[in-house]
Amino acid sequence: MSTILDLLDRPAIDDLARYNFAYLDEQTKRMIRRAILKAIAVPGYQVPFGSREMPMPYGWGTGGVQVTASILGADDVLKVIDQGADDTTNAVSIRKFFQHVAGVKTTTSTEEATVIQTRHRIPERALKAGQTIVFQVPIPEPLRFLEPRETETRAMHALEEYGLMHVKLYEDIARHGHIATTYAYPVKVAGRYVMDPSPTPKFDNPKMHMNPALQLYGAGREARIYAIPPYTEVVSLDFEDHPFAVNRFDRPCALCGAENVYLDEVVTDDAGGRMFVCSDTDNCEDRRAEGYVGEQTEAAESGLSGPREARS
């Protein structure tokens, strides 16, 4: 019979680091899964959950990591991106974490992944039914910067009292001539809850609408989970005379020539030199593998093989 003293017996200090599959214990995973199911049942509603301390700091993806850890199975293929890229430091760190604690297969390919954890972007390549995208969310409450009190914002959601948000957007137009929200642009989900899409640029908002993939949002510090089930209506808030529009870039990607994708601006020298390249590195690499070229790659190629005229 095990006594309480056995139970209290701590392993020797060098045996401390033995963790369950995907780090969290099964009880915690079950609790988080229940929250996820509730979130799916009430699209856009923020479900409180017993968020745990994770071995990475709050604000660095603990919510997303807890959601991913709870849904991950041994057969899953995981992709982690930050700013659209697989090789940004925090994406590397989170991917390594799951390689270490879950031993799952990881990928950089959007196509191949079954679970994609992301910060600030939705991949350019359309997601498929059966895929799950997990967003890391810093501030889940879309009304937070209009009303700092949780007790108030909860009542506003319950009463569907979203006038304040429209006033904010209107004031933007009055002051700047535009809605000055360029990321974390509020959306209404399934005609009911106004939701913060996490700080993705509003460029990505249309991708949320009727998406065949399951979209899960985890906010660790704020202890909230919310979701958009597959094929759900997601509408970006706007006005009839100031309809929602995504930001467009006036040039294609310098590496792969892609248009209508989100671009990063890269400062190339100290004399005002700039170039624009795909934020979604996987999409960019795929396109280049398929033979697409951009301004920069063209120049490099022609540099290697002499003048273009001579080649053609």
Partner: peptide
């Protein structure tokens, strides 16, 4: 303080996607 330090220090993570959106808007303005 664990929550606070995490969130304050997360500002050093890359934010260039969102910053790009702001750049575009401020250029337009």
């Amino acid at each position: 303080n664990v929550q606070a330090t995490g969130f304050v220090e997360h500002l050093k993570l890359p934010h260039y996607v969102d910053f790009q959106s702001e750049l575009q808007l401020i250029r337009t303005l």
